[in-house]
Amino acid sequence: MTRLAAHSIDVELPNGWDGSIYSRNSDPSTVAMPIMHLATFPLPVQRGDFGGGAVELMGSDDVFVSLFEYGPESVSQPLFRGLGMNLPLSPRQFNPSGLQRVIRGQAGYQRFFQEAGRAFCLYVVIGSVFNATRLARQATNALSSVRIGVPA
């Protein structure tokens, strides 16, 4: 297990998983919001916040997770009224139409929620809808160790 922690987000990665917690801010006048990526395959350096450039590299046994934080003004929005990530993930929650970018064979799941007064979007991609049961379990296993705290 490898521990990854930044921006008051803490996760214990299963062996062999890649992970990254970063922030991207092209506008210096705004606060940079953190994004966490977890993957069972080598994450390329250059990739989009929702996995563009990475999901294309996935095999049928791979999982990609993006935890994207929105600004504090979003917490009060109806979209984020759900509490927590609502684990475990069910294989039935994964659907090809849930993908940000449709890639044949893959399936995606998206949930908007709030935790510790912070607004997030959880986006999970599995490499093959036929392996949904096993891959949903793997994603749940990785996500169950995520701890979200109040920003310092």
């Binding site: 490898t2 521990r3 990854l4 922690a5 930044a6 990665l13 299963p14 062996n15 062999g16 998983w17 890649d18 992970g19 990254s20 917690i21 970063y22 922030s23 069972t40 395959f41 080598p42 095999g59 046994d61």
Partner: peptide
Amino acid sequence: VDISGVTVGGDAIAVGVTGSTH
């Protein structure tokens, strides 16, 4: 063992080395 640290830009990063398919 798997590796964790920071990038040159200061972001947290972990690299899966063990148990991976590659």
